[in-house]
Simulated scan of single mutants.
Amino acid sequence: MQAARFMVEGHSVGVDATFVQIGVIAAAYLVAVAATPIASWIVGQGRSAGRDEGLDGMRGAAAVAVVGCHLNQYMCAFLGYTNPFIGDHLGILAVQLFFALTGYLFTDRAIIGRIDPFAFYVNRMRRILPLYVFVVFTALAIALSYSWKTVAPLDHSLREALSVLAFGLWKPDELWFRGINMLSLVGIAWTLSYEWAFYMILIPALLLWRSGTLARVCMALVVLAFLFRDFYFNSEQVIWPFFLPGIVAAMLKHRRPWWLGGVCVALVLPSVLLIIWVPGFWTPVKLALATLVFFAVLFGRPRCLSWAPLQTLGMISYSIYLVQYLVLYPSVRLIYTSPALASVEARLGMGIVIALATIILSAITYRFVERPWLTGLRSTVAPVNSASVELPGIREEAL
């Protein structure tokens, strides 16, 4: 019997493909949740006091959504489905929520008070760079293991390695090392370039914001002008506006209407469904829908996000986000080169192994790479007599 078909983003999509994608993403979440006892044992430490459970739960759910997105792409390619739209849209939504979270956390903690800019930037580097550098060197080691027979000049290989290391600051369209496409190993880190841009703009922007009402009006008009220009002329791949939901949420935090959280929670399911079905990724419509979802998390405080497994996943979410390609790429290479893994059952099983290995490896890297750098971070709140900026103290939190 021929499967029923319908149109999604101009492509004919089978109902069977839809159920496969839902199954793959659901399986990714089930495996991740099942792995949390092991992850908790590896981490060996509970949550830090004062952390926001709702935001940590969102981190965990979003990180697993990105893993599910990539597993879905692999499984759809294997089964011959050319449009893995459900996983792609959920994965992009997860990244958009991470951007909104960054905008919220640092704007919220920078509205009043005093900040030491030097300590702020040092802390951000200590939070982000150790794991990123570990991932890059691991990716280079994996690439070397696949290309050890390749003859290449040493200086050329070193230049390529430096380009890979610099990928987290800017994202070229191509990234190669000894004939290996390194985007397959570190490409997930493309979002870090936008994070760094936000941090660089944050303190100068807040200085200007505090200078008076006229400056605030001018800043708002400039942002709106850039927003209109970029969406009007590009319509796709306009990424920077997805920090705005978090910035706006921070400004609304203490003056929002009482009904806002409840309304956003009521609209969150229709919003997610529209995110999946409406064409495009980084569009004005998706910006509005992602804003509703983020406001629902922040102001609606869904209890489900306080669930213990999501809290564990949220703790290690930065590792989940960055190390997944280190597991996925070698696994997919093995799958497509090993005759023993040619069956549907074997490849489905490998998908489960990939998800499980990603969570376990993420717990290990959090414990031994991330966490040692999280202790003893300098306070961003400067002493009264120091050369400080009249901005709020920003408490360091995980991405």
Rank of each mutant, 00 (worst) to 15 (best):
Y104N: 11
F231V: 05
M350T: 01
A266L: 11
V31P: 00
G113V: 09
R109C: 08
L244P: 00
Y194S: 05
A26K: 00
W170T: 13
N123T: 09
A77N: 10
M125I: 12
D108Q: 14
G376Y: 05
I115C: 09
P270M: 15
Y321C: 08
I188G: 00
R114N: 06
A34N: 07
S193K: 12
I22S: 01
F231Y: 07
Y29P: 00
S319Y: 05
V389D: 05
M219G: 01
P130N: 12
L214Q: 12
L287C: 10
R124G: 02
K286P: 01
M1F: 15
L289D: 02
G168D: 02
V164A: 09
D56Y: 03
I115W: 04
A139N: 00
S306I: 09
T365H: 03
F137E: 02
D155I: 07
E53R: 04
P372W: 08
G113S: 12
R333H: 06
S48H: 05
V135C: 02
V384L: 14
A27S: 10
W307C: 08
A152W: 00
F243S: 00
I247A: 02
L289H: 09
S211G: 11
F226W: 09
V327K: 01
L310V: 13
A382H: 04
P270R: 15
V263P: 00
A197T: 13
C69D: 02
W190L: 10
I38E: 01
T102C: 11
A225F: 11
P130Q: 13
R371H: 13
L97E: 06
W240E: 04
G14R: 07
T283I: 11
L192V: 08
L221K: 11
M7V: 14
L356D: 01
P241F: 07
P204S: 08
L175P: 05
R229P: 01
L328N: 02
T375Y: 10
R347Y: 07
F118Y: 07
D56L: 12
V15C: 03
K286T: 06
L129S: 05
A63N: 04
A398C: 11
F295C: 06
P117Y: 09
R303S: 15
I320H: 05
S271P: 00
T150P: 00
V389L: 14
V353M: 14
I275Q: 03
F228A: 11
T191Y: 15
F85R: 03
W277S: 06
V278P: 01
G46Y: 00
G57T: 03
S331C: 15
G179P: 01
L101R: 04
